[in-house]
Amino acid sequence: MTLLTSMLERPLDPGYQAAADRRRAAGRLPATSTRTPIVLVMVVLTGFLFAVGARSLRPQPTAASAAKAQLVQRIEALQARSSASTARLAALTGEVQSLEALSLRQSGAGGLESRSRSLAVQAGAAALAGPGLTLTLDDSPQSAAGADAGSRPSSGFSSGRVSSTDLQIVVNGLWAAGAEAISVNGHRLTSTAAIRFAGQAIIVDFRPLARPYVLTVLGDADRIRRVFDPAFAGVYLSQLHQALKIQVGWAPGSSLTVPGDPSLRLSFAAPLRRDVGSAPGPSPTGPATP
């Protein structure tokens, strides 16, 4: 306590007072000039020390962090380009479709057009709207604090964070519960959209997601909850919530929209036979005749 008091009450070096008293006793002014050469030298030295200290102690933009910043920049640029391309694609698809419809109607082959439209709904190329629910998943508050969990690549899922496996299981459970369409953070889940991870990032259809993860689900909300909650995925989710404090939020909605994915394209698969009706055969699981 004495230490603190003396520190607070007499913060000034006692030497100043003593020197002033001595000078006063000798009949001179108590203070010396601040412009003596030695003060100047000292002051220049101080400035030098500050500058050098700031220079050498500032966390250097190391090669690694510069590379990281560059990576983030490139990812963001590509993301912007991709979303521009997606919008362009949607516009172009509409344009091409109306041009096609025009010339097909002229030639009397409009049936193909309506088939294409109904298939677009089934394949996830068309946006859908309707009642349903949104499920919001987020990392536990504790894990958000210690976010930078090091440089472990894939295997390092710190507990309390939503992993791609969690998302896969939840989505699987939602489909089983009768969901009619699902999008994750505005990305429609189609038959080619994978839910994967890149280290700690969750990737849906090659696009990194930022938390929170919002699943928009179209369907009968009551029925979905009734089937989902007691099923494996529901139990799994409640365990995530209880044990790992992962945040789970359900909200029913009467008019939700899931976007379509205009970029559906095949480069390897071709139809086995032309013009099989959209109605499947009597036994859809049976092997069809080649």
């Binding site: 913060p11 203070a31 010396t32 601040t34």
Partner: peptide, 17 residues
């Protein structure tokens, strides 16, 4: 400390250094 000493009127270059 030096600045304060100046303002207190008891600055001393030797003490400062």
């Amino acid at each position: 400390g030096g600045v304060r000493a100046v303002l207190d009127g008891i600055f001393n270059d030797k003490v400062f250094v």
